[in-house]
Amino acid sequence: MRFDVLVEVRLRQGIADPEGATIERALPALGFTGIGQVRVGKAIRMVVEAARIQDAEQVASQVALRLLSNPVIEDVEVTVLGSAPAAGGQAAAGGGAIGQ
């Protein structure tokens, strides 16, 4: 089975996010008001081959913790979006989001 996985890396609470703050300050100039708490992170998509959805999530979590994020400053969330299409095949529908 091939699973479509989304890894989101974001700065931990309490870590200054100057990029998010800069975006937030730019919003009123464009006429957008009432928007706050802008945080900038990274989204990494990958396809994981595994027997079961749990295995895909476990492998992706290891990758997320060991390489994709720095636990000193970042939190990470792994979501299995569903099964990925086999080469040339069709996407299977569904697959529950699994947060971490």
């Binding site: 700065l11 870590i15 200054a16 100057p18 990029e19 800069t22 720095n70 000193v72 400053i73």
Partner: peptide, 10 residues
């Protein structure tokens, strides 16, 4: 220990 993040003021 620790980490180096983006400069204040970007």
């Amino acid at each position: 220990p620790g980490a180096l993040q983006k400069n204040r003021g970007l």
